[in-house]
């Protein structure tokens, strides 16, 4: 082992009479975020494969092959594309926060270093949400041109509702990330398998990603049962702004639901995060 030589402190030892000035919370927040984005950049290839694989495979089968075989009706592709983007956004946001939270609290205890940063505990949690939002939005931006490439021109697809689209994307990312954080602080490492089977998979299939919500008019009880699923509002919100000719949920209802869900998930996640942090 290397011997350490006795020496004077390399820089003045702060004392109670001369403390360091307080660090603004914004600066700490940005430092935490820059670490997360650095790691995300480094893991970019894995991130892209993880987020892009499932949606694109689905697009290939349901957005290209089945229509080509004549198994789908005209207009299905317009209904499908926003749903695929919704799925990409949701999964990327959740994955950016859920599994890391489970492991950081569960066994590595890496969260401890963040909890010792000079910032409130709530802001440590909110930074995780913001980081996940960024990754979710990037995933959707990456998947869109790829899906479009696979499906070809989609009748009814438009960017002309750009302000609505921006609002929907930001709120959707917030709702998905807050939900991801909540899941991450609720479950233990042993429950990860259950989480996928009992929560994530049903959410994906009953999230109106592969079919529009109005299509569930044919199964009325299901139409209302799925309203607890945040993915429904993300899918419908993207339909309302990208393919408005496809029948969709009223825009104001979508926005209201996303705001309420984001607020609810965030509040619950912060409460639980605090409990686990200050155990």
């Amino acid at each position: 082992m290397g011997r350490v030589s006795a020496a004077t402190a390399p820089w003045p030892v702060a004392s109670i009479a001369n403390p360091h000035p307080p660090v603004p919370a914004g600066r700490v927040f940005v430092a935490l975020l820059s670490r997360d984005l650095r790691v995300a950049r480094r893991e970019l290839p894995f991130f892209l494969i993880r987020t892009v694989m499932q949606p694109i495979l689905f697009v290939i089968v349901f957005g290209y092959l089945l229509p080509k075989m004549g198994f789908t009706q005209p207009g299905y592709q317009a209904a499908l594309l926003p749903g695929i983007l919704a799925l990409s956004l949701m999964l990327a946001s959740a994955q950016s926060v859920t599994l890391p939270m489970v492991t950081e609290f569960g066994w590595t205890k890496e969260i401890e270093d963040r909890l010792l940063a000079p910032i409130s505990i709530d802001l440590v949690a909110i930074e995780k949400i913001v980081n996940a939002m960024i990754q979710g939005i990037i995933a959707a931006i990456v998947v869109l041109p790829l899906a479009r490439l696979v499906m070809g021109p989609v009748a009814g697809f438009t960017f002309s509702h750009f302000p609505e689209l921006t609002l929907v994307v930001v709120l959707s990312a917030a709702a998905a990330s807050a939900f991801g954080l909540l899941l991450g602080v609720l479950i233990s490492p042993q429950q990860i398998g259950f989480m996928f089977s009992l929560i994530i998979t049903p959410m994906i299939f009953f999230g109106c990603a592969y079919y529009p919500w109005r299509g569930l008019d044919v199964v009325p009880w299901l139409k209302y049962a799925v309203l607890v699923n945040p993915l429904v509002y993300i899918s419908e919100g993207l339909r309302a702004s990208l393919t408005p000719s496809v029948a969709h949920m009223p825009f104001i209802a979508i926005i209201a639901a996303l705001i309420v869900l984001t607020g609810g998930f965030t509040w619950a996640a912060l409460v639980r995060f605090r409990m686990r942090a200050l155990g």
Partner: peptide
């Protein structure tokens, strides 16, 4: 330690948290 970072980065990022 932050396992996603190397030893140097562990120190530098931690310092950034403290301004």
């Amino acid at each position: 330690p932050d396992r996603a970072l190397d030893a140097w980065e562990n120190l530098v990022y931690h310092a950034a948290y403290f301004g």
